[in-house]
Write a protein that binds this DNA or RNA. Structure first.
Length: 425
DNA sequence: TCTGGGGTCCTAGGACCC
DNA sequence: TCTGGGGTCCTAGGACCC
């Protein structure tokens, strides 16, 4: 029998804000100010009736004293890393599931500590709170799905162990749509078949699946809800990145081909910088346009050579852009994803010396990365990204670069006009 | 629910082959 | 050239997660 623990930070972003700024402690705090909608809500604010679906306007009306702060994802991910590190002191088998959650496999540690699994889980929980100042919902069970059910069973600062003694009674209280892996569509489908609780689902026998519109993940869910360990923990985070995405919505929406291309160009630069940070190269890319009607058109392109060079990728996108773009349609967002990633150092050599030729570009991009790190994101960028990064009234033809200078300790913006010289090869 | 951003995984169906 | 049957690979897109 496995012992799997799930840790879930309570109102994680809002709690981190309260830790970073002591004047916010004990007060209602909401994050997400920059987008006009609540992302995370402190328990003080939840008690006042503030909900995620509300706009900031509504929130301020209900509770004029609420502290609305902008999201600081850098800070949250530092706290996340500290959380993983604390749990790793007890076992290396930790899955970094999300910025505020992780799973740990503590099987066998009971003998090592001469403690019950419950005592070990609670010991880690206490340590997390002591060091981070953030409370956690903690669940212990024989697999990931049940551990997830357990961690949200008692809401802030709770601990629950789901064992064979209480499994059925807890599943009878759990709505089917609240189970990890059951989303809107499947929930509707289940309701239509008369299933309401997790127990209604788990008590069906295997033959029930026949002829049902249910897939492999649902079968796994069904097994896990019975206590069977199926879903393994993915422990080696760094090697397992499957794709990198950067997408941005722009307002107002636009029909203009050049502007949309520029948006895409900006996203391409961002995603390539990300790839270089992770030291991976893409063998394939997908770009997409999102219309004002929220439909998507995506185009997938294979790359002859794995790369994280925005110029190469942009070239590819330019070639195939019109497969996605239709004149006269309003678009609201663009996105790019790098896929089939390979580690930088495992780059194979090709017949035509393209790899060697890319060496100089690598140096150049390294310098760009260094400048952007020192002076801020998008200090240096491709000319094709210009209109996405500048107010339209400032865009002039043939201007392809802009730079920020740090002078005398004070940041100043200065625009330099550089004529368009064509795309480097 | 008039709607942000970054991910993973699975399936249906077409292309292609024997 | 048409027809039947079977298999694999690839891609678009849906569903789900935080």
């Amino acid at each position: 029998m496995k012992a799997i623990v799930h840790f879930d930070g309570d109102s994680f972003f809002a709690s981190v804000e309260q830790m970073l700024n002591h004047t916010l402690r004990g007060k209602p705090v909401v994050t997400g100010g920059e987008r006009g909608a609540a992302t995370s809500i402190s328990y003080e604010a939840k008690r006042l009736g503030i909900r995620r679906s509300m706009t900031l306007k509504e929130i301020r009306r209900i509770c004029p004293d609420v502290h609305v702060v902008n999201s600081d994802y850098t800070a949250y991910s530092i706290y996340a890393k500290r959380m993983y590190a604390i749990v790793r002191r007890y076992t290396p088998l930790v899955e970094e599931y999300s910025i505020d959650e992780c799973f740990a496999d503590i099987t066998g540690l009971d003998a090592h500590y001469a403690l019950s699994y419950e005592a070990i889980a609670e010991m880690i929980k206490d340590q997390l709170q002591a060091e981070l100042g953030v409370t956690f919902g903690v669940g212990l069970a024989s697999n990931k799905v049940l551990a997830k059910v357990a961690s949200k069973y008692r809401k802030p600062n709770g601990f629950t162990h789901i064992s064979e003694d209480n499994r059925v009674s807890i599943l009878k209280e759990t709505e089917i749509g609240d189970i990890w892996g059951i989303g809107r569509a499947t929930n509707r489908y289940m309701q239509a078949m008369g299933l309401q609780t997790a127990y209604d689902f788990v008590s069906k026998d295997e033959s029930w699946f026949q002829g049902k519109r249910l897939s492999k993940p649902h079968k796994e869910l069904w097994l896990e809800l019975q206590g069977v360990f199926v879903k393994t923990l993915s422990v080696n985070e760094e090697e397992s990145i499957a794709s990198l995405i950067v997408s941005r919505t722009f307002a107002p929406p636009s029909k203009e081909r050049a502007f949309i291309l520029s948006q895409l160009s900006k996203n391409i630069e961002m995603v390539c910088a990300k790839a270089r940070r992770h030291k991976v190269l893409a063998r394939e890319i997908t770009f997409y346009l999102k219309t004002q009607e929220f439909t998507y058109k995506s185009v997938e392109c294979a790359l002859s050579l794995p790369t994280a060079n925005p110029i190469v990728i942009l070239q590819k996108v330019l070639e195939r852009f019109d497969e996605a773009y239709k004149k006269g349609i309003e678009y609201r967002a663009t996105g790019i994803s790098l896929r089939r990633l390979v580690p930088e150092d495992r780059q194979t050599h090709d017949l035509f010396g393209e790899v060697a030729a890319s060496h100089d570009t690598k140096k150049l991009l390294g310098a760009v990365d260094a400048m952007n790190k020192r002076y801020g994101k998008q200090t240096v960028f491709l000319g094709s990204s210009l209109s996405a990064l500048t107010k339209p009234e400032l865009v002039r033809k043939n201007i392809t670069a802009r730079t920020h200078f740090a002078l005398g300790g004070e940041q100043r913006k200065k625009t330099i006009d550089i004529p368009f010289l064509g795309i480097a090869r």
